[in-house]
Each structure stands twice: as C-alpha cells, then as structure tokens.
C-alpha cells in the first residue's frame, strides 16, 4: 500500500485545526472543531483502505476479486461514521443552543469543582467566575 501525501497532510491539518478549536471557550467553535476532527478521522479511515480503484461489484473486473478494485469496506465504515457524526453534531448544536437560551452566552461554563475553588479564594483568582456572578 502506498501512502498519499496530500491526504496525510490534509488529515494532519484537520486534526490540528480541530484540536485548536476544541480547546476554545466558545461553544460554537468547540462544535466546529469536533466536526473538523471527525472529518480528519473519517479521511484517515478512507486512507487506510488504500488507493482508489474500479467499482468493487462482483464480476465487474476480469482479474478476480481484489485486482484493481477499490476496497469497499472503509467506504462503508466511513459512511456509517459520517451518519453517526451527523446525528450527534445535530444534538450537540441543539444542546449549545439550549445553553445559549439558558445562560445568554455562547461559552463553556465553569464546572462545579472550578466554582468551589474560585469561591474558596476569591482574591487570588480575580478572573475566575464565581457562582454569585452568574445570577
């Protein structure tokens, strides 16, 4: 199996950009970052199947199974993965939207532990959000 440099670079860029966006505090960016990362993963799965080839229908090639045909399995798996990502991303968007409706901002909220630490020493964490601030 020969590698494809363009695909490899693209996969790397997608993972990198996805990871960067995932680490942001804005929920929309997190969602987009996850989308890009899963595109990278799907491309990787596709690349794992080797290079493109003829349509892999039974009897459509002369040289028996395998010769010159594309590997259908990764394509089927990628399709499944895309369908799943589609559904989950829709749910995530709905959740982000709901969060925006409830809090009025498009940001990842502090978790309980963060707030407890912030409440313990308020003067040492001037930038930390405190529970009182949110009301």
């Amino acid at each position: 199996m020969t590698g494809n440099l363009t695909l490899a670079l693209l996969i790397g860029v997608l993972y990198g950009v996805g990871t960067y966006l995932l680490l942001q505090r804005t929920l929309t960016r997190v969602v987009i970052g996850l989308g890009l990362m899963s595109h990278g993963a799907n491309l990787l799965l596709l690349a794992a199947g080797g290079s493109a080839g003829a349509v892999p229908f039974a009897g459509s090639t002369d040289g028996g199974a395998g010769a010159g045909t594309a590997d259908p399995l990764p394509q089927a798996m990628v399709l499944t993965a895309i369908v799943i990502t589609f559904g989950v991303t829709a749910f995530l968007l709905a959740l982000a939207f709901r969060s925006w409706l409830l809090t009025g901002e498009d940001a990842v909220q502090d978790d309980v532990e963060d707030r407890r630490i912030a409440a313990l020493e308020p003067e040492e964490h001037p930038h930390a959000a405190r529970p009182e601030d949110e009301a």
Binding site: L93, A94, F97
Partner: peptide
C-alpha cells in the same frame, strides 16, 4: 422533528 423542535425555539 429537528425542524419542529429546534425551529420552534428559534
């Protein structure tokens, strides 16, 4: 369903 629920909120 997505159109109905999300659309309704939007």
């Amino acid at each position: 369903l997505v159109l109905r629920t999300l659309g309704a909120e939007a």
